[in-house]
Design a protein around this nucleic acid. Structure first.
Lengths: 217, 217
DNA sequence: CTTCTTCTGAATCGTTTGCTCCATAAAAGG
DNA sequence: CCTTTTATGGAGCAAACGATTCAGAAGAAG
């Protein structure tokens, strides 16, 4: 199994034998992710990658196995960041803070100044999978399924704990919050400014909190 | 200018001289759109297109000029449907109906039973433009800019007409509605059912209307 | 009928694609 | 020192790509 070799060498590289790698592997993954983000998987050739990353074809294949392997690693790397946003948000104590953190952190993630083209990498990369070993569409659905279930569980817990009224439709509430988050990503992608998105996040938070208050027994 | 020839022959074809076209042009555009939607521009080869549309290479090039030309026509065709949703929604009399129509019509558009893979075609096709004659990213931004401005103007008019309180932040309200609509598209894309999205649309409408009522003088 | 115009199918062109091979370079182990 | 191990750079392969060409087919106009 050759693939294991590429994944075994994690970012914390310990000194091994042989000639040391001349480029920063993690940096290369991030640069590749940005390229895939903008032009899609099929739209990004290996020549584009080697040119942008500043390394030769053989170096790329020695480090990542294939174009699909590099793509897969780029997707997984970015995916963890989104999962982390949900993980931290649902850990908050009261539901208002959960929603607030989720919305605000999402806006910050979608409009990072380091990324020239903001928005969620996955929503664009997920479409053009082609013959990738990773079924990106399924992976993307799985990731967002995980995030959505985490949020739903948190809201249902709030209902059980009496933080919300017993009759509250947790699923519908989850769906709305998810829609707003996804919508923020799309609008970031379309060029909305950080301030625009923050205004949306604040208004959404206000309306949702008012709804929660109204539902509170 | 050869391109003019391809565009001149509109769907309402009047009998011309020469051998008649053996396939349905409009149907071919829609089928191509679905293919581009799923696999992106670069991910869809001309062989894929000719196979799925059931026509030969020369027929495709005679009818659309190039792969980019077919893509451009597919994008423009779909874009008009989305523009129409906004056009009809903002024409409604009171603002509550505007928002209701926009949300509900969007859900219906994003989960049409005829389309196997639902969601907004443009949000996926816009990423993988490559060397297309149409700068899809810019076209996409322009379309949604038009829609957003139409909605913003409608909300501002509501403020001026006294339908809403004078202090209402029309821009923030527009941003939130837009985010929800885009979010509905993304979730449809991720496999959310028609009922899920309808529940989201209803809840969003409820919260927004409550907000409007609270803002009313 | 003939002529004119347009569409179709097959073959194919030149380019780009993802990827491999191999000689060489640079470190570590003995 | 020499051997082993890994990375680099460049040349290049087989396949797929977008696009073109051309002989023939099919209807409209005269």
């Amino acid at each position: 199994m050759k693939q294991a070799l590429y994944n075994a060498r994690v970012s914390q590289q310990q000194r091994t034998r042989g000639r040391p790698r001349a480029f920063d592997r993690d940096r290369a993954v991030l640069d590749a992710a940005r390229l895939f983000w903008r032009r899609g998987y099929s739209g990004t050739s290996t020549r584009d990658l080697t040119a942008a990353l500043g390394l030769s074809t053989s170096s790329l294949y020695a480090a990542f196995g294939s174009k699909a392997g590099l793509f897969e690693e780029a997707v997984r790397t970015y995916a963890e960041r989104y999962r982390e946003i949900y993980r931290q948000a649902v850990a908050e104590k009261d539901l208002r803070t959960v929603i607030d953190r989720l919305l605000i952190d999402s806006v910050h993630e979608f409009t990072r100044p380091s990324d020239v083209h903001p928005g969620c990498l996955l929503s664009s990369a997920a479409m053009t999978d082609s013959t990738s070993t990773l079924d990106t569409s399924a992976y993307y659905a799985e990731l967002h399924g995980w995030n959505e279930r985490a949020l739903l569980a948190r809201i249902e817990r709030a209902v059980q704990d009496g933080e919300l009224a017993a009759g509250t439709d947790a699923a519908a509430l989850t769906g709305l919050v998810q829609s707003v988050v996804h919508g923020l990503s799309v609008r970031a992608n379309l060029g909305a400014t950080h301030e625009d998105l923050m205004a949306t996040a604040r208004l959404a938070h206000e309306l949702l909190c008012r709804h929660l208050t109204a539902s509170t027994p």
